[in-house]
Amino acid sequence: MSFTALCHQIFPAVIDEYHRYDDVDHPIANPYREGSIEHLLYLKNWIDTVQWHLEDLIRDPQIDPVEALVLKRRIDRSNQERTDMVEYIDSYFLDKFKDVAIESGAKINTESPAWAIDRLSILALKIYHMAQEVKRTDVSAKHVEECRRKLDILLQQRTDLTTAIEELLADMAAGHKYMKVYKQMKMYNDPELNPVLYAAK
């Protein structure tokens, strides 16, 4: 099974599992062995799925401002977890390709494999929710048709992104490309780097 095929197997299963409960506080039940790449992919998409719905909740025009602030803090934490998961997945690829002989003239990609997989995870969520819009019976035919066109585009994006990821992994396996991992130095979360936080000390 190709790596993207594994993603296409796990991500929809995660999204379906979440929507059995449709509750941002429902505990994750990751079925894969801890430390495995399957476990990481499941956890990555669960984080993305919960955050998707947190982003919906915070846009409620009637939301209480205090509750909105609590949600904003939670979304911030989720963003950090999402970034951490990307770095864990990239560590998997660094280990996988560590013995590959990088050829002279090999190039680095604009993004690491895991950041491309992050996009694939979000795309799975877009596809799921756009498909739900297509199935709605309480909206106009125009709405359904517009959403169907958008869904077709999202499915084409998935095909293109899948191809690009597989080509990148093949190039890395052959030594035609190599990867570097730059830690995401998020300054706003760091009490030593965010001026609002260090001024409050």
Rank of each mutant, 00 (worst) to 15 (best):
F3S: 03
H8G: 06
P12C: 06
A13N: 12
A13E: 14
E17S: 13
E17Q: 14
H19F: 08
Y21D: 04
V24N: 05
I28P: 00
E38H: 12
L40T: 10
L41N: 00
L41I: 03
Y42V: 00
W46P: 01
T49S: 08
V50K: 00
V50R: 01
V50G: 01
Q51S: 09
W52N: 08
H53P: 04
L54R: 08
D56F: 07
D56I: 12
L57V: 04
I58G: 09
D60T: 02
P61C: 06
Q62G: 13
V66G: 01
V70L: 10
V70G: 13
R74S: 07
I75D: 01
Q80S: 14
T83F: 12
D84I: 05
M85D: 04
D90A: 10
Y92F: 15
L94D: 01
F97C: 10
F97P: 06
F97D: 04
F97Q: 07
K98R: 15
I102Y: 01
E103P: 03
A106I: 00
K107H: 14
N109G: 15
W115I: 09
L123Y: 08
I127E: 00
C147E: 06
C147L: 03
L155Y: 07
Q156N: 07
Q157Y: 12
R158D: 12
R158S: 13
T159V: 12
T159Q: 13
T159W: 05
T162L: 02
T162A: 14
A164H: 10
I165R: 00
E166Y: 05
L168E: 00
L169P: 01
A170I: 09
D171C: 09
M172H: 02
M172R: 01
K180R: 07
Q184G: 05
M185N: 13
M185C: 11
M185E: 13
M187L: 14
M187D: 11
D190Q: 03
P191A: 02
P191T: 06
E192C: 03
L193A: 08
L193I: 02
P195E: 09
V196G: 05
A199N: 10
A200V: 03
K201W: 07
